[in-house]
Structures are given as C-alpha cells and as structure tokens.
C-alpha cells in the first residue's frame, strides 16, 4: 500500500496515503476519535496538534489529509514548573 513520509515529534514517520490528522492522533494515543476530534468515550483527550508550526484545532483533524513532508507535533501536559 502506498505510504507518505512525514515528521512526527521530530522523528521520521510514515503513514498510509490518505491518512488524516485524526487517524494519526487516534493511532498515536490509542483512542477512538469522533468527527469533532474528541474521544468517543467522552473523556478528555488532553492533546493538541501543530502542523508545520501552527495549531490545527481538533475540529479540523478529521478533514485534514496529511501531505508528504508535513511536520507534526502532538503535545500534552508534562511535568514542569
């Protein structure tokens, strides 16, 4: 199957062609996500996505098709002062 190469959290990563941002985040967080980018189980996901250095709001994850060379950052809360 055809795949495309992206950068995910500073690492080379490959995804099936036609993948959306929602597919990537669902795989990466092991959570099922709805069209609105929220977890289908109703609990908060606690992550955000930047595509090429700009925030992509969760409501747009399902409609954003990943492009070769995209630089994605999936972030969450971590220990910090």
């Amino acid at each position: 199957m055809h795949s495309i190469d992206i950068q995910l959290n500073n690492q080379a990563h490959s995804v099936p062609a036609g993948s959306t941002a929602r597919d990537l985040i669902a795989t990466h967080t092991s959570r099922a996500l709805g069209e609105d980018g929220r977890a289908v189980d109703g609990s908060r996901l606690g992550v955000a996505l930047a595509v090429n250095g700009a925030v992509l709001p969760r409501g747009k994850w399902a409609s954003y098709a990943l492009c070769a060379g995209d630089r994605l950052d999936i972030v969450t809360a971590a220990q910090g002062g």
Partner: peptide
C-alpha cells in the same frame, strides 16, 4: 498546578493530565 507542554509519548508511564484530573 503548573505543567509544561511537551511531545506526547505513545508508551508513556502515566499521565500528568490524568493525575491532575
């Protein structure tokens, strides 16, 4: 409580976010 914003680690050892919740 303050938290930093960092890359999500797929195989994380628990989550600060869940802890605060």
């Amino acid at each position: 409580t303050t938290v930093a914003i960092r890359h999500f680690a797929a195989a994380g050892s628990g989550s600060v976010y869940e802890l605060l919740r």
